[in-house]
Design a protein around this nucleic acid. Structure first.
Length: 591
RNA sequence: GGACUGGUAGUUCAAUGGUUAGAGCAUCGCCCUGUCACGGCGAAAGUUGCGGGUUCGAGUCCCGUCCGGUCCGCCA
């Protein structure tokens, strides 16, 4: 006799009279004295059971002992509820069952935490009892939603003849810039595997092997500090293709998003817009601009250069810039201005100050700095910003990086504060034409902006020796509502160029050989032109589920200290295990 | 590594430095035949994260420490 013939959430009026057996959990018990209602829950939903002592005293007796989260099995006949007692809020609210039999499969002790979404619970506590927490409607919904999106991606790629291929988890450190998680080798004492930060080199090798279209739902590991949108292990939809150019990758990726949105019942407009990296930085102060609202950064550098306001003109003469935001500030209090100023001058924003000009009625101006400007300059500023009555322009003057960072953040802050962001919008943008390198502002050394296997734009090849900072990369990021969802590039497939890039990164020839010898050799053996992209699945699901933390879309996530409250990993290990691995623990002295 | 913030009953929260630290939910008991976040009456439930200090008196103030969260640094 099987446990169940049907599932709770799927039953409706059309099943009236149907004999069913069901199994699941007691979601809630409502004991009215003479009659007991129970909502039985399984993975499809909930169904009301009724016990009446006059109809079935045995069942009623068992129902009296049932408590929340008991695991039970029942048999009975689906009946339409008496007129007037239907519950329109419940999917199965038109029907109910008077069980003919009930069996307790397993009892449950009193729950350590509430499982109702309307009751807040400390997240640490939820994670400690994650197996219970996942019974919540909201968590069930999120995890199932995640599956649906993953499947939409798989379906699309498989239909396009992509091959799902697994790559090693025990591998060698690939240089993505993050710290590696290390695994000691027992067979070769003193040596370590690294967990992959991404399958980058393997997928390139698969292209060289001739598979031409690869994807993987790949777990990646990076030993860095966590954020609400960053976990130490996360999942990437990793994709690589041969004999393609940027357009192929972009249209393929757009196809994936089109399919995801179709599956979740939304529309998305293709193709996505594209924006140069420089444009994104200049207009939005970020490489991942939120295009759900306008408010662009306005450049006043040229006006300030010759103005009588020395604080600004001095900065411009030292290669700094002056930019601003034009903001509707009607009815703002003095405190709101000060709060903004305080915000911008925090360490995070890094600006030295915030100046403003406010345009009041009758062409009046309120501003701590207006007196330094001529009539002509003031009018130029107003025209440039297209400022209207009730607007203020907020200025930041400094080095380019600081101005962009401060105003980029301020823009997002104001977007929230002034409610300018339409949360129902889906704004995708490709950020293209990235620089291949950036100069480390402390050491002056070159760093790659993407990763070292990104191909330079062939048009800029001649600049590699002379002005490497000006070399553009064949790289692209996909940005959704101001969040980077993924990125990729066309790879370098010529050995000489790859070697050159590695040398420019100040890596010794010997180290190049040690770490990338196998790649360089592979490139020299008929490597096809290839490229790909990696999409952050966790982040994508988080965004589409309108959640603000990855922990809400990962079944068993880690907390900020990279530990798992449920299993209490990481933990100490037996001394025998350490000995076998020839490891000794030497903790730093607490000082 | 740093900034901010939180830690009080099983749980979510409350409590000007001043009686015996309170309330909702959950639990337990009694009552209740159409509830659906059922309702009513009652009970039990506390090392105020931990360790120091100030004070006549500390959940409250100070110092240290542990843990969670958000962010900066860090992170293709």
């Amino acid at each position: 006799m099987s446990f169940r013939s049907h599932f709770c959430g799927t039953l409706s009026q059309s099943d009236d009279g149907l004999k069913v057996s069901l199994a699941g959990w007691v979601d809630v018990r409502r004991d009215l004295g003479g009659v007991i209602f129970i909502e039985l829950r399984d993975h499809t939903g909930k169904l009301q059971l009724v016990a009446d002592p006059q109809i079935n005293p045995q069942v009623y007796k068992v129902f009296e002992t049932l408590k929340a989260e008991y695991c039970i099995k029942i048999q009975g006949i689906i009946k339409n509820r008496p007129a007037g007692t239907e519950n329109p809020d419940l999917r199965t609210g038109a029907v109910e069952i008077y069980p003919e039999s009930v069996e307790i499969l397993n009892k449950s002790k009193t729950l350590p935490l509430p499982l109702k979404d309307f009751e807040d619970t400390d997240e640490l506590f939820r994670l400690k009892y994650r197996f219970l927490d996942l019974r919540r409607d909201s968590m069930q919904k999120n995890i199932r939603f995640r599956h649906k999106i993953t499947q939409a991606i798989r379906d699309y790629l498989v239909a396009k003849d992509f091959l799902e291929i697994e790559t090693p988890i025990l591998t060698k450190s690939t240089p993505e810039g993050a710290r590696d998680y290390l695994v000691p080798s027992r067979m070769q004492k003193g040596k370590f595997f690294a967990l992959p930060q991404s399958p980058q080199l393997f997928k390139q090798l698969l292209m060289i092997s001739g598979f031409e279209k690869y994807f993987q739902v790949a777990r990646c590991f990076r030993d860095e500090d966590l954020r609400a949108d960053r976990q130490p292990e996360f999942t990437q939809i990793d994709i690589e293709m041969s004999f393609i150019n940027i357009e192929d990758i972009i249209s393929n990726t757009e196809g994936i998003f089109e399919n995801i949105f179709k599956v979740i019942g939304k529309n998305v407009k293709l193709p996505f817009q594209r924006m140069d990296y420089d444009t994104a930085m200049n207009l939005y102060g970020k490489d991942a601009p939120d295009l759900r609202f306008d408010m662009k950064l306005i450049d006043f550098t040229d006006i300030m250069e010759t103005s009588g306001f020395e604080s600004f003109s001095k900065i411009v003469s030292k290669n700094g810039i002056v930019k601003g935001l034009c903001v509707p500030t009607k009815d703002w209090s003095r405190k709101e201005y000060d709060d903004l100023k305080n915000l911008v001058t925090t360490k995070e924003y890094g600006a030295k100050g915030l100046a403003w000009i406010t345009y009041k009625e009758n062409n009046e101006i309120a501003s701590p700095i207006a007196k330094f400007f001529s009539e002509e300059e003031l009018s130029k500023i107003k025209t440039r910003a297209n400022a209207k009555e009730g607007d203020s322009i907020f200025f930041v003057a400094d080095k380019k990086e600081i101005v962009h960072n401060a105003l980029g953040r301020l823009r997002l802050h104001l977007g929230e504060k002034l409610n300018l962001i339409d949360k129902n919008k889906d704004e995708f943008v490709w950020i293209v034409n990235w620089p291949l390198f950036e100069k480390d502002h402390i050491s002056g050394k070159l760093n790659v902006m993407h990763h070292p296997f990104t191909s330079p734009d062939m048009k800029d090849l001649h600049l590699l020796d002379t002005e490497p900072v000006k070399v553009r990369a064949l790289a692209y990021d996909i940005v959704y509502n101001g969040v980077e969802l993924g990125g990729g590039s066309i790879r370098t497939y010529r050995e000489d160029i790859q070697k050159k890039v590695l040398q420019l990164l100040n890596i010794e020839d010997e180290e190049i050989e040690n770490r990338f010898g196998f790649l360089l050799q592979a490139l020299s053996l008929g490597a096809p032109p290839h490229g790909g992209i990696a999409l952050g699945l966790d982040r994508l699901v988080m965004m589409l589920a309108k959640e603000t933390s990855l922990r809400q879309v990962i079944a068993f996530p880690k907390v900020q200290s990279s530990s798992c409250p449920l299993t209490e990993a990481p933990s100490e290990v037996d001394s025998e295990q350490l000995e076998e691995l020839a490891l000794k623990i030497s903790l730093p002295n607490p000082s």
